[in-house]
Every structure is written in structure tokens, then in C-alpha cells.
Amino acid sequence: MNQDTTQHAHTKRNYKPAIIIITIIVNGIVILLSGLPGVENFNAFDITILPMMNAIFNSFTFLFLVGALAAILKKNVTVHRRFIYAAFTSTTLFLVTYVAYHFLSESTPYGGSGFMAGLYYFILITHIVLAAIIVPLALTSVARAWNMENERHRKIARWTMPIWLYVSITGVIVYLMISPYY
């Protein structure tokens, strides 16, 4: 065992069960909500503000991830960690507003046609698939960092970072493309 592994062997935690449970819950809720009709006659507030908040939180996530990437390229682990925690926070806030909107409202159909419809659906489908995949990837990445499994963290982060960047920026693009139809 190398020195890094020896020093931290007693503090390693098995995060796999939590990662699996969180992934199933998050992806399950999103799948469940996609099939619900929404709350009828909800008028406590204008719920179309929620998709805008989703886009804002996705924008922050994207910026925090870019900051995290820049920090780790400069080998500044402390700043990298802070940006990653900020990205998790903004992603969590996104998830809350996303779930609230899709619980309260039925899905909004895209109103465009032709090339723009094809582009929209391509971005939307890749966004949805990769959003489901990013949940366990991001959680595994952070768990490996917490366990000081630096080499394993780097290996998975090479996949996690670009996918998470893609998911966060395409969330904004999807919002910009569908917002005229709310």
C-alpha cells in the first residue's frame, strides 16, 4: 500500500449504497413526474417562473464547474472542492425547482418545426439521457474524493466533468428553445 492509502485506510467509507439509493430516487421521481398530468387549476403563483429558475441554476452549475475545472488544472484542490460543492448546491436547487414545476404542471410541448425541432429534440434527448447518467457519476466522483482515492477520482472525473458540463449547458439551451411556448 502506498502512503496515501495507508494514511486514509481507516477513514474510507462505502458510499455505494447511498449512491445507488439516491440515483434510484432522483431518476425515479423524474420518470414518475414525466407521466403525471400536473396539478389542475394551480394558481398560487405563476409556475412558469420555475423553468427560468431551472435555467438560472443550470447556468450557475455550468459556471461553477468551469471554475472547478480551472482550479484543478492549476492544482488548487481547495478552490476546486469549493466550486464542486457550489455546483452540487446549484444542481440540488435546480432539482427542487424542476420537480416542483413538473409536479404542478403538465409538460410543455415544443412548438417549433423543421430543423429547429430536430435540433431541439436531439439536445433534449441527449440532455435527458446524460442527466440520468450524471447522478451516479457525480456522486461517485465526490465519494472517491472524500475517500482520498485520488487516482480513481481522476479516472471517473475525466468522464463526469464533460458530461456534467454538457448536461448543465444543454439545460439552459433547452429552456431558451422552449421558453416561447410556455
Rank of each mutant, 00 (worst) to 15 (best):
N2P: 09
Q3P: 04
T6W: 08
Q7L: 13
T11V: 14
K12A: 10
R13I: 15
R13N: 15
N14T: 10
K16P: 14
K16T: 13
P17W: 09
A18V: 14
I22S: 12
T23R: 04
I25Q: 09
S34C: 10
G35A: 00
G35S: 03
P37V: 01
F45M: 00
I47T: 07
I49S: 07
I49L: 15
P51W: 12
P51Q: 08
M53H: 15
M53L: 14
A55H: 03
A55I: 14
A55Q: 11
A55N: 13
I56G: 12
I56H: 08
N58H: 03
F60E: 08
T61G: 13
F62M: 13
F64Q: 09
L65K: 01
L65R: 05
G67F: 08
A68T: 00
K75W: 01
N76Q: 05
R81T: 11
R81L: 08
R82K: 00
A87W: 08
F88Q: 06
F88R: 03
L93H: 11
L93W: 00
L95F: 11
V99R: 13
H102V: 01
F103S: 07
S105G: 06
G114A: 00
F115C: 00
A117K: 09
L119A: 05
I123N: 02
H127C: 06
I128H: 04
V129I: 15
V129Q: 12
V129M: 09
A131E: 05
A132L: 12
L137N: 02
T140K: 15
V142M: 15
A143E: 14
A143I: 05
A143C: 11
N147H: 04
M148C: 09
E149L: 15
N150D: 12
E151M: 08
H153R: 08
R154S: 10
K155T: 06
A157W: 07
W159R: 03
W159E: 01
M161Q: 06
W164T: 01
L165P: 02
G171D: 01
V172H: 03
V172Q: 01
Y175E: 01
P180W: 02
Y182R: 12
